[in-house]
Design a protein around this nucleic acid. Structure first.
Lengths: 194, 194
DNA sequence: GAATGTACTTACCGTTTGGTAAGTTGTCAA
DNA sequence: TTGACAACTTACCAAACGGTAAGTACATTC
């Protein structure tokens, strides 16, 4: 169960990239987190871009694994969709680093389309879209995508904004909001599909 | 109507910060956009942080202006809220730089809480929350905030993801989705408040 | 016409950046 | 016991970073 150096590098990199973004995090800082030099990091990953790509790849693998688990556990498409969206929300609240990283990638990848893992969201989104369509046949593909993205946004945006909201509204108020957010989100999902 | 150098700097900075983030955009690059040196920029703004602060401030002023205009034009709170959210959505679709900048600030401001304009979202959010509560009295403050944030997220997330989605799904499909997004969003808003 | 201020420039500075080159050290197999 | 490989290190490097200092060019004002 002891993590390899490589895995430790990936974990540290995920954290720092999520916090400061690609440009804001330096490979030297990431390496220092493990008490190693940046050349040790370069030895394992070649260069900074490749490291970033690997972080993204490992993240997308975790995402995919989560989803296929849900798909197996519930046969009803409506229930499936609800569970997928809520599980994604819970996952992002629990692992804010990943949530922030995904958001950053959404903002940045326009510029560097050559990065590995660029389209890893595609399968994930396609899956949700077709689930929406099988729940409510009235939806066109475009409509279904719009709905999926609205629901995804409703969840992800909140997960990512947590620290900022804590500052704006205070931890007390935000604890309340966090508590009722999931129930409210569930309602929103059902309403969107009706 | 001719923009001052200072205004031109602000515009160029907004664009580049939105595209690359605070660390990714260098003051030299911003200045080069106007054919000037970075020392000209420093002459006007002192340092990079202050420039970023000014960009944020001017952005928040535009946001506030938009909202008070809407508040004046429609007396019914339900209509007001719907219009505020939709106007914000349209604004972000039209000025994607601002949308991206706000998202970036949401991600980054945790780390540098000293930045000017840090809480400029507060008034905006408070306003939406109280409007939600006056539309539907059943909502607690925490619930209202949750709803507001879900709706805001639904809109903002989509606006920001545009280039990525164009890549994933193709411009054709995305044009369709864009077209029906607003109507779908309006439905979602109404459903969330019922 | 001298002084003042604004809008810049060139010339630097120290630090940090991502990256290369060339070891060193330990392990493990033939 | 030698040879090969992996996992590092120290020593560099050129370029870019944000920022300072000192000057130039041009109005405006007294």
């Amino acid at each position: 169960m002891t993590a390899t150096t490589r895995e430790q590098f990936l974990a540290a990199a995920e954290h720092l990239f999520a916090e400061k973004g690609f440009y804001g995090a330096s490979i030297a800082t990431i390496a220092r987190e493990l008490g190693l030099t940046k050349q040790a990091l370069l030895h394992h990953f070649g260069n900074k871009e490749k490291l970033y790509g690997e972080v993204l790849r490992s993240l997308s693998e975790r995402l995919a694994a989560n989803n296929s688990e849900i798909r197996e556990n519930s046969p009803d498409p409506a229930e499936q969709l609800e569970e997928m969206l809520l599980a994604q929300f819970r996952g992002q609240m629990a692992h804010q680093d990943s949530a922030r990283l995904i958001m950053r990638e959404l903002l940045d990848n326009e510029q560097r389309a050559d990065r590995a893992g660029n389209w890893y969201l595609k399968d994930y989104l396609e899956e949700l879209v077709s689930t929406v369509q099988s729940v409510n046949r009235k939806f066109s593909r475009a409509q279904a995508l719009a709905v999926v993205y609205q629901l995804l946004g409703a969840a992800h945006y909140f997960a990512v904004s947590q620290p900022t909201l804590d500052n704006i509204f205070g931890k007390r108020q935000m604890a309340d909001t966090r508590q009722c957010f999931e129930a409210q989100l569930r309602q929103l999902i059902r309403a969107a599909l009706a």
